[in-house]
Simulated scan of single mutants.
Amino acid sequence: MTSEFQLNEEAAHHLVGVLRLKAGHEFLAFDGTGQEARTRILQTRPHVLVEVLEVCRPQVEPEVSVTLFLALVKGERFDWAVEKSTELGVSSLVPMVTRRTEVRHPGEERRGRWQRLAVSAAAQSGRVQVPEIETPLDFAQALDRASGFEQAFLLKPGGVSLPGSRADRVALLVGPEGGFSDEEVREAQVRGLLLVGLGPRTLRVETAALAALARIIQT
């Protein structure tokens, strides 16, 4: 972080318009890449200018880096999944279109909205890194990516109990409401992905994703 910098419009509005901070007030800022800084507001007009007082790299991020490949779902449920997976510590999130996905590839405007939600959730939860919401992939593309990770799991009812991770980089694939097709499951097994489950209950897509993510990160 530089010694002085100007806040973008959204951050400036939150600090001055919502929190009512004024020149001289101090607050914690983060750059999304792991650095956090104690800062002071120098001016609020015509723009918000702040100075950096102290920089640190707090150890608040998970030791394991998890990329979540999550099948698109309708409505605001995907928004919710972006927020909560960010709070839990996901490193990146890849929207995924599978054979049974009812939602097709979203546009850049929607992906931009998801990225803004991730920034907000990271700030709210005290993280110093913001996960990237990547360009949506179809299942074959997601499988190509996931097979290159140290560990790769595909969530499926009846799969083995999700083990703790001993890897630095983990891929987690979570399918749509109807689950992965038999062909997709076979393709994943051929590529070396482990089929894992979360017990006997039928969970919604976003619930299953968060439960699996929490188990991987916290074990």
Rank of each mutant, 00 (worst) to 15 (best):
A188L: 08
D138A: 02
A142Y: 03
S120E: 15
K156H: 15
G175H: 02
R113F: 12
Q124E: 11
A188H: 10
L195G: 05
R127N: 02
S161A: 15
V185M: 06
W114A: 05
D182W: 00
P157W: 15
V130K: 05
Q151H: 12
P176F: 09
D138M: 03
E134M: 05
R191I: 10
P163W: 12
Q124G: 11
V185A: 06
R111T: 15
L162R: 08
L137P: 07
I133W: 13
L173M: 14
Q151V: 06
V196M: 08
R127A: 03
G199W: 10
F180T: 04
A140Y: 09
R111Y: 06
G175N: 00
L155A: 12
Q141F: 07
G148I: 01
P200T: 07
F149G: 00
F149H: 14
D138Y: 04
R145I: 04
E184C: 14
S125I: 03
F139G: 04
L193F: 02
Q115P: 13
R127K: 10
A121T: 00
Q151P: 00
G148H: 08
A142S: 14
A167Y: 05
A188P: 06
D168E: 14
F180A: 08
P131L: 02
V185P: 01
V128A: 05
G158I: 10
F153G: 10
A171P: 01
S165H: 01
L155S: 00
G197V: 09
L154A: 10
L173H: 02
P200C: 03
P136N: 12
A142G: 15
E177G: 12
Q189V: 11
Q115M: 13
L143D: 04
D138F: 05
L155C: 05
V185R: 07
D144C: 03
G178S: 11
L173T: 02
W114P: 06
A118S: 11
A171L: 05
P176N: 08
